[in-house]
């Protein structure tokens, strides 16, 4: 029974830095004693070892059960698709990209997947070969193509610059990750309508068997880790808004604030009495507001007698339960111990 938990993190690539930033924001700063070593630790959570791996190896190691936890792109998790690989939280809020089918911009006759199916038949009829698609996501590509009725194709494997394959002439189109579409455009490619295979972001994954076998100690560590990441993610989207309101009756003020879904907050307002120089009674209200509702909330508070307001970002918001922890429990319960 393992007494410690190992968390595998991407050592380089687009996810490497943002992952360390994310963990630091969660209060789980990773300490790496030697930049050339592949191990590290989390000082706030002794018992958690960190292992730095190439992102593909992160997924492979978690799947194989060499480590308990890992952070990698959702795209790689889905490509591997294994019963032993649990998706604990697929929305860590960074590393956004999508797996996208793109065709040369010169293919003006090709607008959607149905066109591509037709073109694939053209390739067989007039060029006596299959449509060639460059990709590193064979499994997802096959699923997607068959689901769209495209059955005759060849997948071309290309390490590195997949987007260049159609220009270089060794593929006809590509299925690749795209963040902004700039790389596609620079290579004279265009995303096909209806050609998005999946949307991906950084994802926390775990190994089913290893997590099922955890003892009491590591189990607690795991729960803390999930509580902190969930709370940081919840906090990221929320502000603590304080404002001074004029008024005598706290009950009436509270009702007014609760009346508007924007200012209802998580559990309703906290009101504290205030007195100004003139001895007038007022209240300070404190609310948790979702980030995109900050201005509407201020506007509304003004309309019911609000004067100054201040807001600050929240680092952690703990809900009644950690959603990731609940989800993980469910995933582990659903399966027989293997």
């Amino acid at each position: 029974m393992p007494e410690r938990i190992t968390l595998a993190l991407p050592s380089r690539g687009v996810l490497a830095e943002p992952t360390l930033d994310f963990l630091r924001d969660c209060g789980l700063a990773v300490h790496k004693p030697n930049p050339r070593q592949y191990t590290g630790s989390v000082r706030t959570l002794p018992g958690v070892d960190v292992l730095f791996q190439r992102v593909k190896d992160v997924v492979a190691k978690v799947e194989a059960g060499t480590v308990e936890l890992g952070i990698a792109g959702y795209d790689l998790v889905r490509e591997l698709e294994s019963d032993d690989l649990l998706t604990i939280n697929d929305q860590l809020g960074y590393g956004h990209c999508q797996l996208q089918l793109a065709v040369p911009t010169t293919w003006v006759d090709v607008q959607g997947m149905a066109d591509l199916v037709d073109v694939a038949q053209d390739f067989r009829q007039y060029h006596h070969r299959n449509l060639r698609i460059a990709t590193n996501f064979n499994h997802l590509a096959r699923q997607f193509l068959h689901a769209h009725g495209l059955h005759h194709y060849s997948l071309v494997r290309a390490e590195g610059a997949i987007e260049a394959a159609p220009t270089l002439g060794y593929a006809d189109c590509v299925i690749d990750l795209s963040q902004t579409g700039t790389t596609l455009r620079e290579n004279h490619l265009r995303p096909l309508r209806g050609g998005t295979l999946l949307k991906s972001q950084a994802t926390l994954i775990g190994n089913r068997g290893r997590l099922q076998a955890l003892g009491q100690g590591p189990r607690k560590l795991l729960r803390t880790l999930l509580e902190l990441t969930d709370a940081a993610l919840q906090g990221r989207e929320r502000y603590l808004l304080s404002a001074n309101l004029a008024g005598e009756d706290p009950g009436r003020l509270a009702r007014k604030i609760m009346d508007n879904p924007v200012t209802r907050g998580l559990e309703g307002p906290t009101l504290a009495p205030t007195w100004n120089d003139a001895g007038q009674r007022g209240y300070a209200v404190t609310l948790v507001i979702s980030a995109d509702q900050l201005l509407p909330a201020v506007e509304y508070l003004r309309s019911i007698g609000g004067r100054q307001a201040s807001a600050r970002p929240l680092r952690h918001v703990f809900l009644e339960e950690s959603p990731s922890w609940l989800r993980l429990q469910r995933l582990l319960d659903d399966s027989p111990q293997s």
């Binding site: 911009t105 006759d109 007039y126 189109c173 290579n187």
Partner: peptide, 17 residues
């Protein structure tokens, strides 16, 4: 048409389709 990427299709393929 602008762009150098044609995949394995030439202008005639596109026109025909």
């Amino acid at each position: 048409l602008h762009g150098t990427a044609m995949g394995g299709r030439d202008h005639r393929d596109i026109a025909r389709r």
